[in-house]
Design a protein around this nucleic acid. Structure first.
Length: 819
DNA sequence: AACCCCAGTATTTTT
DNA sequence: TACTGGGGTT
């Protein structure tokens, strides 16, 4: 074992001195001074506030490399956490480029997979086994649905979706059924039922030897708190914890990080407990381990890109980092290496409307670049047509398809784009969307695997017991369940005693057949004691299950056209299993299932080569393209209607829009439609407020909202482009012909100059405000007027909002009411 | 138990 | 519009 020599690097405001060689000089090449500082700083806690496109991944990876080079850390002492597998993969790759093979020993993974790894080792400490499985949200919904039904909870207005949402939220705050019950209002019968459901749900999970997504984090925290010596094992191991996208952490993730970076509690614990995990104890500078200091923590984030509050992410984790970790160092990265200044100016202008944020202005050294292009379509098809034409034009000027992306707020918006793209022969790829692993046939196939891997998981068995149809219905299933209960055995084991169930001979045969198939697959994939299953076992076992269960045949025989595609999907899953075996020769079914449960389609790498990428604004985070189209820039879409009632909703939508804008390197298009069909109804759409927040001179409107409204004269492009198509399949035509006047905005005062959006400009008339008045603002909530300045239409109210922010508002147009 | 039809309803983002 | 669930029928 090599002795660890340590080079202490003094962080500072100076660049590398000429002539002086440091082990990591080359790591600092090309970095600006803030970036260097972020790489080189050493201390307990470091917050890197990294604006969009400011090179944070470079900084993070070089920081890791620097720790290794200087021998301050062994690879095994590094834990780097990201949110997506894709981000983790990228980071690993880039670290590997810098340090080569030693990257292998690091944990670079998502929160969830890191926790799976830990839980896998420690599950037996608290009532689970190593072969636990993971419930995705669909699985938990199914379980909750059953429980809701059993308790007839819908009578109390508790729908499965609502129950699931609340439980998830509570878990993200580390509450469990008991702790919640203690502070719930138990006089409310609905509340009582909810508490019961929560408890049921948790018991069922435990019985099934399963964790849901939230549990993976929450139970790990629980484990660390309940078993400090277990926690110490990991604290001893991970001396450097780095967290990416810190603004997206929720309370549970925050707690997890806290637990990991806490000082080691019991400094005499034997290092080799915990299932033989290797603990390296390299020589350290004296004083570092003696005091049992906590691991060093580096977090990277940008509160302006926090877009997951709706699922528990707490922006305060980043805004209050300095308070949580006293003595923390903060480094600001504001220089943007991605976008042109025009794009950044637009982004800055929009985001500055969010109060309650640290002012941060992205800037670029690369000049203004092209103007932002705006376009208002008549309908969503018209809008899509414009996008397609523009994509085509860009392509002809040499921009590769893979360097273009189209964003939208909701998945359903992709349809119109797809239709037009197909017609226009523009190659495209939809990222996300209905995910491969959520398709019914894939879930079925996986349920077969779960039935083998984790026999305790009754849900999986219930799912496949009549799939393909075996004639086993509710009655029979209940008979099996009852039998299992009476005999005190599992549902799975009950299948082996088909003859004892008291069901007809046909059923008995069907059950016995299924039992046999599962047993054979088990022999193949999980050979008894000691023997190691061959790498191909998962793929082979899955094939066996799909064939011998009759699943494949049923799809093959079906005359439903879609079943052909389903069959292909099943084959694809088998291919995935083969691929898995190649990458993980020692991987078991359990490992395969965990991997599959934790990947999303967004993760599958840019095989979007040669096609335009279509995705939601959320999935766009972390990506960048030469040309970006943000479509559907309308009120009720972005900001989404549902966000209006949620506290902080509009601000989060603004951040989402900001994320979209900052994905663009060279060209940004903002498009909208005047009418939009949603669930069969055509409605008039209003331009998004965010458009008004962009300075007019940055935008070149090819067709502004005013153009489309005035005199109804603008002919639909989609119509023009399709002479003689007969209009079949384009059901919106009627409204185009006879309805234009109805689309005109109520206000006729302004017609057509760039970025003036008459339909949306709000007019508070002569609202009189004076110091002391209280007002309510659509985004910011309630506040008190401190002072009023200016004259006439330019009167400005200085408002102190209850939430703490100070804002200057143009009284005439601000979305405020006097209260 | 499987199929069919109707009605109602929901349409944000995801590890 | 598209999908789901319920209810009734075969």
């Amino acid at each position: 074992m090599p002795a660890g020599s340590v080079g202490i690097i003094v962080g500072g405001d100076h660049g590398p001195h000429a002539g002086e060689t440091r082990p990591d000089d080359d790591l600092l090449v090309g970095l600006n001074s803030q970036q260097r500082e972020a790489v080189v700083y050493r201390g307990q806690a470091l917050l890197i506030v990294a604006g969009a496109g400011s090179g944070k991944t470079s900084v993070l990876t070089r920081r890791i490399a620097s720790l290794l080079r200087s021998r301050e850390a062994w690879p095994s002492e590094i834990l780097a956490i990201t949110f997506t597998n894709k981000a983790a993969g990228e980071m690993r790759e880039r670290v590997e480029q810098l340090v080569g093979n030693s990257a292998k020993g690091m944990w670079i993974s998502t929160f969830h997979s890191a926790c799976v790894r830990i839980l896998r080792r420690e599950a037996e400490q608290f009532g689970f086994t190593k072969s636990f499985t993971i419930y995705d949200s669909g699985d938990s919904r199914a379980l909750i649905k059953r429980l809701v039904k059993e308790r007839e909870a819908d009578a109390f207005g508790l729908t499965p979706a609502a129950v699931q949402g609340r439980i998830s939220k509570l878990k993200n705050e580390l509450a469990d059924a008991e702790s919640y019950a203690r502070q719930a209002n138990m006089n409310d019968p609905a509340e009582r039922v909810f508490v019961e459901l929560f408890g049921d749900y948790q018991r069922e999970l435990q019985r099934a030897n399963a964790f849901d997504f939230d549990d993976l984090i929450g139970q790990t925290v629980f484990l660390f708190r309940a078993f400090p010596r277990v926690a110490d094992v990991y604290r001893r191991r991970f001396r450097h914890v780095l967290v990416d996208e810190y603004q997206d952490t929720n309370a549970a993730q925050y707690a997890l990080i806290h637990e990991l970076t806490r000082p080691i509690s019991d400094s005499v614990a034997e290092p080799f407990e915990s299932n033989g995990m290797m603990i390296f104890e390299p020589d350290r500078p004296s004083g570092r381990d003696a005091g049992g200091e906590g691991a060093s923590l580096t977090v990277v984030g940008d509160s302006d890109q926090s877009i997951y509050a709706f699922r528990g992410a707490d922006i305060r984790n980043i805004t209050e980092f300095e308070r949580d970790f006293p003595g923390a160092k903060v480094v600001l990265l504001e220089q943007n290496y991605r976008s042109t200044q025009n794009i950044l100016s637009a982004a800055n202008a929009v985001i500055s409307n969010n109060f309650d944020r640290k002012d941060k202005r992205l800037w670029s050294a690369d000049g203004p670049g092209e103007k932002i292009v705006g376009y208002t379509g008549y309908s969503q098809h018209d809008e899509a047509q414009f996008v397609a034409e523009e994509v085509d034009a860009l392509r002809r000027t040499g921009v590769d398809y893979s360097q273009m992306a189209v964003f939208y707020r909701t998945n359903s918006q992709s349809r119109a784009l797809e239709e037009i793209f197909i017609r226009a022969a523009v190659p495209y790829k939809i990222m996300g969307g209905t995910r491969f692993y959520e398709r019914a046939e894939i879930k079925d196939a996986l349920a077969y695997l779960v039935a083998v891997a984790n026999p305790a998981d009754e849900m999986a068995l219930r799912r496949i017991i009549n799939r393909p149809r075996r004639g086993i219905g509710d009655v029979t299933v209940e008979a099996i369940a009852r039998y299992a209960q009476n005999e005190g055995i599992t549902f799975r084991d009950a299948l082996a005693n088909a003859s004892a169930l008291g069901v007809g001979p046909k059923m008995q045969a069907a059950i016995a057949q299924l039992d046999q198939v599962l047993a054979d697959a088990t022999d193949l994939m999980l050979p008894a004691s000691g023997e190691l299953a061959p790498p191909t076992a998962v793929a082979d076992g899955l094939t066996l299950l799909m064939d011998r269960s009759g699943y494949r045949d049923a799809l093959r025989m079906s005359r439903d056209a879609q079943d052909e595609a389903r069959l292909e999907n099943v084959d694809e899953l088998i291919a995935v299993a083969r691929e898995f075996a190649r990458n993980n020769p020692e991987g078991t079914v359990i490992d395969f299932l965990a991997e599959v449960a934790l990947v999303s389609d967004t993760d599958d790498l840019e095989d979007a080569s040669g096609s335009v990428s279509l995705m939601t604004l959320h999935t766009a985070k972390g990506l960048e393209y030469d040309a970006v189209f943000i479509t559907g820039v309308e009120e009720d879409l972005i900001p989404h209607r549902i966000s209006a009632n949620e506290p902080g909703g509009p601000a989060e939508e603004r951040r989402l829009f900001y994320v979209g804008v900052t994905r663009a390197r060279k060209r940004l298009y903002l498009t909208l439609a005047m009418t939009r069909a949603q669930f069969g109804e055509i409605s008039v759409a209003m331009p998004s407020r965010f458009l008004q927040e962009i300075p007019g001179e940055l935008v070149d409107w090819r067709q502004s909202p005013g153009d489309v409204n005035s005199r109804g004269g603008t002919q639909s492009r989609a119509l023009n482009a399709r002479p003689g198509s007969g209009g079949s399949g384009w059901g919106r035509r009627q409204i185009r012909h006879d309805d234009p006047p109805a689309l005109a905005p109520k206000s006729t005062s302004l017609d057509r100059f760039p970025n003036r959006i008459p339909a949306k400009l709000r007019d508070n008339g002569d609202m009189v405000l004076e110091a002391g008045d209280r007002i309510r603002h659509d985004d910011f909530g309630e506040g008190r007027v401190d002072a009023v300045t200016g004259e006439g239409a330019k009167r400005v109210a200085h408002v102190r909002f209850d939430s703490g922010g100070l804002k200057k508002l143009l009284i005439k147009v601000a979305p405020i009411t006097k209260i």
